[in-house]
Amino acid sequence: MLAFLANRLFALGLTLLLATVVIFLVLEIIPGDPARLMLGINATQDAVDVLREQMGLNQPPLQRYWSWVTGLLVGDFGTSYTYSVPVSELILERIVVSLPLALIALTLSTLIAIPVGIYAASHRGRVSDTAVIATTQLGIAIPNFWFALLLVYVFAVSLRLVPAGGFPGWDAGVWEAVKALILPSIALALPQAAILARVTRSAIIETLGEDYVRTARAKGLTYRQTLWRHTLRNAMIPVVTIMGLQFAFLLAGTIIIENVFYLPGLGRLVFQAITQHDLPVVQSVVVLLVATVVLINFLVDIAYAVIDPRLRRSVS
């Protein structure tokens, strides 16, 4: 188990390191001079040169990469070009919107999907199963931002139950803040729930066909008992995999959803930063998101090992 963890941790570190290189290289080839962009086309060349020196743009790339990565390790994410404040401050300000949003959405999606998936699998071939299949098929096809528009139209514009957009901040009270996140998280969660429910259903059905389920039946267990005692845990591996992928997707999905609801989250921050060529912000947020994804993959790997004793010994 220890060797397993050490090995996964090493792979995690390696992926992260490579990711920082990729991000740095990609942003390196962006056309346009950030100093010129900040000062505008009317600025004198001298002013631009001074700013370039201040921003450290005249240093060789390797040195800039090194100072960026070492900065990351101690929590120094650099200073935003546009806002002239430390990037870490900006991120902190925004993450309190995006993270709760993604977490609520993931919880919602899991709470809906897994029971629905189990129900459909145990009623395979009946009308209720067919209805679940049809609904999830539709759910997968709906773009979440369109669904969001629809939710806004129905619940905010017509029924006026919740605000149509914006975020009052957590200072305005937890309920007010959560109220602003309800529609966005539903818009994010439902299409994901459709995918997860289908995965759950087919994982269970596949497991029900295994030989050991027949052994359990031959022991005298009823269909329902075999489902709960011998099928669910075995079927969890693909479900956990998809959940891991979905969390990453939900984090990134906030880019679009935050645009629909005018939420001041990480997605909007990075989106604006990209259009404004605010490199320190873009770099940091992307690294942060990649790190989260890698970390989730690590947790998923650990979850596998917890579920499956066969993985506790061997490595991959």
Binding site: A11, L14, T15, L18, A19, V22, V26, L27, I29, I30, P31, A248, F249, L251, A252, G253, I255, I256, V270, F271, I274, T275, V282, V286, L289, V290, V293, V294, N297
Partner: peptide, 21 residues
Amino acid sequence: RFNDLIFAFPALLSAVMITAI
């Protein structure tokens, strides 16, 4: 490893980056 690396970037985020760049 290359696959792992690409999968580590949320696709939508990277698409936004690429088109923006």
